[in-house]
Design a protein around this nucleic acid. Structure first.
Lengths: 231, 231
DNA sequence: AGTTTAGGCCAACGGGTGTTGGCCAACGCT
DNA sequence: AGCGTTGGCCAACACCCGTTGGCCTAAACT
């Protein structure tokens, strides 16, 4: 059998209830792959939801799964297209290139809580708990982590996420402008490191931990990196 | 020009003064039918240092660099062979396959210190300091980490290193058989996580840290994971 | 000397990849 | 109805990869 029992295109399947995060427009770019996520979006009158939007979504969802599971190189466009039940050429049509697809698939908003409003002693546990929930709810972060380990291109995206999201959040608990970068990097090292052992390397003891245990172990570490006096 | 000014083969160049760390023997670990090039090796009479040994070394050294810099897929056999100044087919002759080469290139002995003999309060800093020195002295560990992030095959090798080297060492400070695996995994998450941000993702604040700062920040964390009462 | 063997290069094969252009069916409009 | 646009598929191209087998040089041995 050549595996073709379901020619049903993507838009036939129920459009996933995920909140349409990736616009992915103007993907053609050779050396500077990052497309502006929402270039022309008049805030009034949201666009009338074309039929192809669900296909775009299906592609991005499949891409996230494949990137998270297989890394950048092994996640082939053909495999992603097969998962999304469409032709590989559609991926090129919509996202311009494999890098464009990756950029669209892995743009994420960490929605970090406002650390300034929390009790001083709880920011560590709150951060760990929040990030853990995010990591378990989708594989965007795993995809980003995996690809970031695969080469400088992916690493740059992780650097950007660190710089634009984690670093400002850390600034709210430690106003010292020198220390804040160091402390944020230490926090990142512990959070990314645990995600690495649990979701990528799959060290058995790391996989076995419950949410409560993770928060209880990692929370104080993050707390110390953020608020303890520098050694 | 097709870049061929130096046909000098590998053994012409000075054999690197590296202390011959990699045995590079019996690379068949997963399921590779490697034809052992030197089948008869009597344990007495240390082998007469064939001329090809320096070539083997050159290949492994180049492979480590390439794997550490580019990851598994992007580190092509052709590029490794070019770095080692030999033909790609020689890599196949000596290591059987790309996986065999990788297995030979990243077999590492962490030489972890005997944690039982150290003062109780210093095991964390000692571990961090030791691992940091190892990581800076060669790119074996970076190569292993990068490839481990690229797919289940590489991850398995990292699991093995964890299981066979870090876990026994951790057992010397915490004899509780249940807790030791968890604690070792936490230690791994922090150590690998920092190595990730510093050597792979290259987050600037992480790269900027000095050895003393790293030990002072990470040491207490590792210490707590190893010896503090479970929360 | 002559012969054997190890060390090395060359050219190629088969397969998989990202990417492209052309063709076709279904929908939306007047 | 007729016609243009949108959404989609197919077949192919060009490239690069891991891998193979044959041939050749230079060292090692007798």
């Amino acid at each position: 059998m050549t595996e073709k029992p379901a020619p049903t295109p993507a838009h036939t399947r129920a459009a996933a209830p995920t909140p349409a995060d990736a616009p992915a427009d103007a993907p053609t770019s050779t050396s500077a792959p990052i497309p502006t996520p929402t270039p022309a979006a008049p805030p009034d009158q949201p666009p009338p939801r074309r039929r192809s939007d669900s296909t775009r979504e299906a592609i991005v969802v499949a891409a996230r799964e494949r990137f998270a599971a297989d890394g950048y190189e092994r996640a082939t466009i053909r495999a992603i297209a097969r998962d999304a039940r469409i032709d590989p050429s559609m991926v090129m049509r919509y996202y311009g290139s494999k890098e464009g697809l990756f950029a669209a698939a892995v743009s994420v908003d960490l929605r970090l809580p406002d650390l300034g409003t929390l009790p001083r002693g709880e920011v560590g546990e709150a951060l760990v708990s929040h990030l853990f929930g995010l990591w378990e709810s989708s594989d965007v972060l795993t995809a980003m982590l995996r690809v970031a380990s695969a080469g400088p291109a992916g690493a740059e995206r992780m650097q950007a996420t660190f710089r634009e999201q984690l670093l400002p959040a850390a600034r709210q608990t430690c106003p010292d402008p020198e220390q804040v970068a160091t402390r944020a990097a230490l926090v990142a090292s512990q959070l990314l490191g645990f995600a690495l052992t649990r979701y990528v390397l799959r060290l058995p003891p790391s996989v076995a931990l419950s949410r409560a245990e993770i928060v209880a172990w990692l929370g104080p570490t993050v707390q110390r990196y953020l608020t303890a006096p520098s050694p």
